[in-house]
């Protein structure tokens, strides 16, 4: 029966000691430890929230970046297309111009060549005439210096005329 009979003295001391222990721990220990734990929890929660916010911000920035990139790509393509178009246009125009100009030049040169030909021919003719006159003069002078020949020549001419 000793085992299950509570003794008053022990209950008395245990009560006093436990109350003292409780008060000391409450005042000097639990207050601080719980405060620290709470502060840390608060800190962790805050930093987690901050991280979440930062993540969201980063996502927004990324999306913006992507949009900007897409826009830039579109613009680039547009510009390229335009540039190509302009290039082709310029090429085409240049070709046309070149053709016209070359035709013009060809025409002009042809005309010039024709004119030059005419002039050259006329000069040639004149010179030929002069040359033939000189030659005929000399021949005549030579022929006429000899009597026979003069007569022959005259006869010939008369023959030809006949």
């Amino acid at each position: 029966m000793d085992l299950v009979t509570p003794s008053i003295g022990l209950i008395f001391w245990q009560t006093i000691i436990f109350i003292l222990l409780f008060l000391i721990l409450k005042k000097f220990v639990w207050k601080y430890i719980l405060e620290y734990v709470e502060k840390r929890e608060y800190n962790i929660r805050k930093s987690l929230e901050f991280v979440e916010k930062a993540k969201q911000e980063v996502n927004i920035i990324k999306e913006n970046n992507n949009l900007l990139l897409k826009e830039a790509m579109l613009k680039k393509e547009k510009i390229l297309k335009e540039a190509l178009y302009i290039k082709k246009k310029i090429e085409f125009e240049a070709k046309e111009n070149a053709k016209i100009e070359s035709e013009n030049i060809i025409n002009k040169t042809m005309e010039k060549i024709k004119n030059d030909k005419k002039e050259a021919l006329e000069i040639l003719k004149k010179e030929l005439i002069q040359l033939s006159i000189i030659a005929s003069e000399k021949l005549l002078k030579k022929e006429l210096s000899i009597k026979n020949t003069q007569e022959n020549f005259l006869n010939k001419i008369i023959d030809d005329l006949k």
């Binding site: 008053i8 022990l10 003292l20 000391i24 721990l25």
Partner: peptide, 23 residues
């Protein structure tokens, strides 16, 4: 009325001091 400092009482006191020191 027996309010002696028994074996258990002295142990409780020692253990209480240990707990206070640790914490």
């Amino acid at each position: 009325l027996d309010l002696s400092i028994t074996k258990n009482v002295i142990t409780i006191i020692i253990i209480s001091i240990i707990i206070i020191c640790i914490f």
